[in-house]
């Protein structure tokens, strides 16, 4: 994965000094993660790109507010998650749900041999299962199982109690288990 946390401290220093290359480095390092979360949450590539762009611009303008108590990545995830949830709850969605099928199509772009198709079927089912989770469960499972954040980091990013994180995650996984029943051994 790009942008290891070890480099984050110096990256933040450079950003605070107004080093324009640092901003570029930040975008390069985190673009896929921020975009990935946005796409999982919004289900539409164009909307996800727009949101990811907003996230980076926000970071660019607000780097002075970053206290360094959390990891830079956690801060970025927090901004991304909040932006996504805001957008989803305020109904401020110009691109509506027209592209919501994007995620299910993501995995089936390449059609190959039979086992490949089977794998694609699983991938499609997975994307769809995640996409069908409620927003508040989806964001927790995305941050935990796809992005690898700890419970504490998720709690910090979403400003939730640790217990809430744990229970939402558990519910999300139980939902997924039900949806993925036929792929389980």
């Amino acid at each position: 994965m790009e942008g290891r946390t070890g480099d984050d401290a110096s990256l933040v220093d450079r950003l605070r000094r107004g080093d324009s290359r640092a901003f570029e480095d930040l975008v390069i390092a985190y673009q896929h993660r921020v975009f990935g979360v946005a796409l999982r949450m919004l289900g539409n590539r164009a909307e996800a790109e727009e949101l990811a762009q907003e996230v980076f611009l926000r970071v660019y303008r607000a780097i002075g507010e970053f206290r360094g108590e959390a990891k830079l990545s956690t801060w970025l995830y927090a901004i991304t998650a909040r932006q996504c949830l805001n957008r989803l709850t305020t109904g401020e969605r110009r691109m509506a749900r027209q592209g919501e099928e994007t995620l299910t199509r993501l995995a089936s772009r390449e059609v190959g041999p039979a086992e490949e198709m089977e794998r694609n079927e699983l991938e499609t089912a997975l994307h769809r299962a995640i996409a069908e989770l409620s927003e508040e469960r989806r964001i927790v499972v995305v941050l935990r199982d796809l992005e690898g954040l700890s419970y504490e980091e998720i709690a910090a990013a979403l400003e939730l109690e640790l217990g809430t994180v744990r229970s939402r995650l558990h519910r999300a996984r139980m939902d997924l288990r039900d949806k993925l029943e036929r792929f389980l051994p």
Partner: peptide, 25 residues
Amino acid sequence: TVALVRAVGPLRAPAGFVDRVLEAA
């Protein structure tokens, strides 16, 4: 189930995303 979910491949930002962000910045 958790193993399946964790095996989902990461999504990638579209090509030219970095340039567009820098431009917007």
